[in-house]
């Protein structure tokens, strides 16, 4: 594909990280191009539990803040649940 249209920011990689960055920039009024070798959200982003969603990640607090807003922000039902399944953990009595 060729295009004469430039952009202020070019993001390489259309997974969840690249798309999120592009979406936030576009929302803030920046012109962005995201390029990907294949289909957006196709590879690890389609099947990864998400290292960034772990509480040891420096992005954890922000991720926890954003997740519940996703349906409304994107206008798409993301199937977010606050409680992910727990493993061999006791149920609160």
């Amino acid at each position: 594909m060729t295009s004469s249209k430039g952009a202020s920011v070019v993001i390489v990689g259309g997974g969840v990280t690249g798309l999120s960055a592009g979406w936030q920039l576009a929302r803030a009024g920046c012109d962005v191009v995201v390029v990907d070798k294949g289909v957006v959200g196709y590879e690890a982003s389609s099947r990864n539990g998400g290292g960034a969603s772990h509480y040891h990640s420096p992005l954890f607090a922000e991720e926890q803040r954003l997740w519940p807003q996703m349906d409304e922000l994107l206008g798409y039902p993301t199937e977010y649940r606050r409680e992910r399944s727990s493993w061999r953990s006791p149920r609160p009595s």
Partner: peptide
Amino acid sequence: WFGIPEQWIP
């Protein structure tokens, strides 16, 4: 994952 032992804690 990533050697993080506490990942199973809700």
